[in-house]
Structures are given as structure tokens and as C-alpha cells.
């Protein structure tokens, strides 16, 4: 017998095999696409075709419900692998010139004496994102926003590359090194809080997350509180807000104090 004799309805095995398979498929399809959709108590289908489309997963837009208007701006920064790659010396130089206007708060060498973040050696992606967010209004600050609002895309990239190029501040903090608090190293698994260190250094660094070692304690505390109260909203998919809301005041204190006490030169070099 050749395959020609196999694929014919004269072959009992072919007829039975194909017949049973087709029957099962048809029965399950009728059940899944017609019977079960109508069996749902909430079902409001206009026709059988409507039910079939719904069960098949055809994307549907309901016109009766208007999309909720977004009154607050969200971060729109897009970072690709080419956005900040290989800055030229000229670009860094342009960034240095532009950075003179930042020096009043962030220090002439990117090291702040005013409880503003130290920018020297910060990841370029971080500065790039924050400047974009200040410019678009996704993040706002009475002092910072006016500086950012007139920057061009190229100027933001140059500034980011310049600060990333500067050496990180030396370990000058007088406070003794604090032991690693649980919230930094382990998070709180039962409250769905990932360890701070999983994104911000100490364990690992994730794109767009700043390293925090040696930053101002008051600044970090204020930012965590701002995230918790929804006052700051430029985190992607609410990841920082979800964490900050679940943190206890003691954990906020502990995390801010710990990172402030750490010398920046221990920051894990991954770039």
C-alpha cells in the first residue's frame, strides 16, 4: 500500500481518524465559541458572530466608555542602545560648558554641597531621563524645571555624557559605614518589595536607575516620600511609587541613611 491508498476515504483508518478529529474539533469549537460565551451571566452579545469574535480574542473597542483622560504627564523617555553610545570628546566638552549653569546647586565638579544629588559619575541614562522628564513636565521642581525647559535633545545628551564622564566623588562622608539594612539587601518579599540594591547598586544595577551611594540623605528621603504621596510621578509603570507606598517610615529612614553613608567608590562598576 502506498501513501496514495492512505489518503483516501476508501481507507477506513483515514476516514475514522480524520472523522473523529474533525468531530472533536467542531464540537469543542461550537462549545468554546458559541455555547460558553452565551452561558456567561454578563454576556451581552448582539449576534452569534459577535460572540465568536469575542471568544476568538478579536480586539474590540467599546465606544460607550470614553478613554480616561490623562491629566498628569507621564515620562516619555525612550532609551535605545544607540541613544548615548560612544560620546565624542567634543560632546563631553559641550556638556562641560552647559554644566556651568548647574554648578550652583550640583557643584562645580558635580559634587553637591546643597543636598542636591551628586552628579559626578552618575549613569548617563539616569541624567538623560531626568532632564527629559523635567523638560516635559513629568517631573517638576521649582528650581530645576526652569533650567530644563529650554534644553534641546542634543544638550541633554551632552550634559548626560559630561556628568557620566566625571570621576565619582571620593569617600569623604564622615559617618561610619552602617550595616546593610534588610530593605536594601532583601527587600520585603511578603509586601512585594524588591531589594533597593537589586536596581540601585550594592547588588545590581538596572538601566535608568541611579546609583545612590554617598547621595544626600535628606534628598533621598524626600524623594521616597514624594513617590509615596504620588507627588513625584515620573517612574516607569509606577515601580518606585508602588515600592515607596509599601515602605514603612523606618525603612525609608534606614535606606536613605544607609546609602548616604556608603562611599561612592564602592559602586559596582557595570558600565
Amino acid at each position: 500500500m502506498s501513501t496514495r491508498d492512505l489518503f483516501t476515504f476508501r481507507n477506513r483508518h483515514f476516514t475514522i481518524g480524520v472523522g473523529i478529529t474533525a468531530a472533536i474539533l467542531i464540537v469543542t469549537a461550537v462549545a468554546g465559541f458559541v455555547v460558553l460565551p452565551f452561558a456567561q451571566p454578563w454576556a451581552r452579545f448582539t449576534s452569534i458572530w459577535d460572540a465568536i469574535c469575542s471568544a476568538a480574542g478579536v480586539p474590540q473597542r467599546t465606544t460607550s466608555v470614553a478613554a480616561q483622560a490623562q491629566d498628569k504627564r507621564l515620562s516619555e523617555v525612550v532609551l535605545t542602545s544607540r541613544t548615548l553610545s560612544r560620546p565624542s570628546q567634543e560632546a563631553i566638552g559641550r556638556g562641560a560648558t552647559l554644566a556651568q549653569r548647574c554648578a550652583i546647586c550640583h557643584g562645580p565638579t558635580g559634587i553637591s554641597r546643597a543636598d542636591s544629588p551628586n552628579l559626578a559619575g552618575q549613569y548617563a541614562a539616569v541624567i538623560y531621563k531626568e532632564l527629559h522628564d523635567f523638560r516635559s513636565g513629568a517631573r517638576s521642581n521649582a528650581v530645576m524645571s526652569p533650567f530644563a525647559v529650554n534644553l534641546t535633545d542634543d544638550e541633554i545628551a551632552d550634559l548626560s555624557n559630561y556628568y557620566a564622564y566625571l570621576p565619582r566623588p571620593p569617600a569623604y562622608h564622615p559617618t561610619p559605614l552602617l550595616p546593610k539594612p534588610n530593605i536594601v539587601i532583601y527587600g520585603a518579599p511578603l509586601r512585594g518589595i524588591a531589594p533597593c540594591g537589586a536596581c540601585h547598586g550594592s547588588l545590581d544595577n538596572k538601566t535608568g536607575s541611579p546609583w545612590l551611594e554617598g547621595q544626600s540623605e535628606a534628598y533621598m528621603k524626600a524623594q521616597l516620600q514624594a513617590f509615596a504621596s504620588d507627588e513625584r510621578r515620573n517612574d516607569i509603570s509606577q515601580q518606585m511609587r508602588n515600592i515607596a507606598r509599601a515602605l514603612t517610615p523606618q525603612e525609608i529612614e534606614a535606606a536613605a541613611a544607609y546609602y548616604a553613608s556608603q562611599p561612592p567608590d564602592v559602586v559596582k562598576a557595570v558600565d
Partner: peptide, 17 residues
């Protein structure tokens, strides 16, 4: 959420088989 319930049902039935 990206899969239709009808297909989930068919796959469930065939899994039983």
C-alpha cells in the same frame, strides 16, 4: 489576556484527550 477564551477552551478539551 491576549488569548481568546474560545481558544483556551479548545486547548483545554484537547489536553483532556
Amino acid at each position: 489576556p491576549q488569548v481568546g477564551a474560545g481558544f483556551k477552551f479548545i486547548h483545554s478539551a484537547f489536553t483532556a484527550l
